[in-house]
Computed example of a mutant assay.
Amino acid sequence: MAYEVSGVVARAQGEPVTVEKVLVPDPGPGEAIVSVRACGVCHTDLHYREGGINDEFPFLLGHEAAGVVERVGAGVTAIEPGDFVILNWRAVCGVCRACRRGRPWYCFDTHNAAQPMTLADGTELSPALGIGAFVEKTLVHSGQCTKVSPAAEPAVAGLLGCGVMAGIGAAINTGQVGRGDTVAVIGCGGVGDAAIAGARLAGAGTIIAVDTDARKLEWARSFGATHTIHARDRGEDEIVAEVREHTAGFGADVVIDAVGRPETWRQAFYARDLAGTVVLVGVPTPDMRLADLPFIDFFARGGSLKSSWYGDCLPSRDFPMLIEAYLQGRLPLERFVTERIPLNGVEKAFERMHRGEVLRSVVVFD
């Protein structure tokens, strides 16, 4: 028996999304049906609509979601109907070379549901990041469901499913920010602000926010930035010098590039202390190239240059811990939710996101 529900579909590149009937099959072995309670509007969903991920239209958009397990398929034991879960797009396989080496956060063969969800005419949908959660019910692999405390508000909890987790993890997991460290974050949208919140949670002493938008710098302060640098109309050398001014002339222990452009990465490279760490969590486009850097600088400055994949997170480890920090008042996840919208409000939310007016719009289901 298939469930007939409403979902947000992108039928063609660049065209406005539509709310359409979606057929969701009964869960097969290893699968689960989740009744979605809330789903954040992420830049990745817009990239899908614009054809920036792949061309496998039509897409069922949405992936930053929390909900309640409704049914499970054969062989599923880790979750059961009634569990409150956050959905994730890195359900680890447990058997690939990364998993066997004890590094499941790098899993190279993550799981998705085997069965497709379809439109009413039978057209198969490509679910965004293997989830597809701008829909009343979605079909996922059971490993994509992480059980957390039901005391968390769904609109808040679901944000750990992508951007917020990417930023927090960039600070805590990839950058390994520690107590008393100095941290600079370049780019203070949702991911950058999450990195700031993560650095604060980890006990960083100085947290420097860098952005070209004064409003975003105010947001950064609300998440824990101790200093801000307004970068508009300023050269790279000026920005690096100011980071050094706020770190006793040395540079930051960890610099997180949440923009992902060659110029911001260079700023990060030179704004760190000797033996410091650069973390790239902003996603570059395929055409971008790093300009020449003196090779001696790579050697002489030492330290680490890292890329952060989804905050190097392990959902089963990180989601429950971060939800508990939120419930204890130590992690202000609720501040990321700028507005709550209905299912038919996604297209307008894309426009507000593109203009930088929101951190997150969140679709909330009754």
Rank of each mutant, 00 (worst) to 15 (best):
D213Y: 14
G102L: 02
S361P: 12
T212E: 15
P127G: 08
R340D: 15
F365P: 04
A252V: 03
G356H: 11
A151F: 15
E20Y: 07
T182I: 02
Q13F: 12
P25M: 08
I341F: 14
P29F: 09
S308P: 11
S149W: 15
A98S: 15
E50A: 12
G180M: 08
G52K: 15
V362S: 10
P116L: 06
Q267P: 09
G28H: 14
A120L: 00
P27A: 01
D211L: 07
A171R: 08
K137F: 09
G282Y: 06
P262K: 00
P262Y: 04
E64R: 13
G178I: 06
V140P: 01
P58F: 06
D366V: 11
G189H: 13
A214H: 14
C93Y: 11
V363L: 07
C145H: 03
A114K: 13
A271I: 06
A197Q: 13
A209I: 07
R335Q: 15
A38K: 02
G302R: 01
E20Q: 15
N112A: 11
G260R: 07
C313Q: 14
L322C: 10
A155S: 14
R335I: 09
G7M: 01
F269H: 04
D257C: 01
G302S: 08
V183A: 09
L280I: 09
A194M: 04
A214D: 07
A151S: 14
D233K: 15
M353E: 04
S307I: 12
M1K: 01
L159Y: 00
H227D: 01
S304F: 14
G187M: 10
K21E: 08
A2W: 03
L331I: 10
I33D: 03
G180K: 08
R221K: 01
N54Q: 01
L160A: 10
E64Y: 00
I168V: 13
V8N: 09
F223E: 11
P154S: 03
M288P: 03
G7N: 00
G7C: 05
L331T: 04
V34L: 01
L160S: 08
I86N: 03
A65N: 02
T123I: 09
A214S: 15
C93V: 06
L139Q: 00
L293H: 10
L61W: 01
V358C: 07
G205P: 00
V278K: 06
S142A: 11
P150I: 06
G190V: 00
V255A: 10
V259S: 05
G303K: 10
T44S: 12
N344Y: 05
L217N: 04
E50N: 14
Y270S: 00
C99H: 07
F299N: 08
P294R: 13
D312N: 10
R340F: 03
W265E: 01
S222V: 07
G67R: 05
T264I: 04
F365V: 05
G190Q: 10
V17A: 08
T118F: 04
A268F: 11
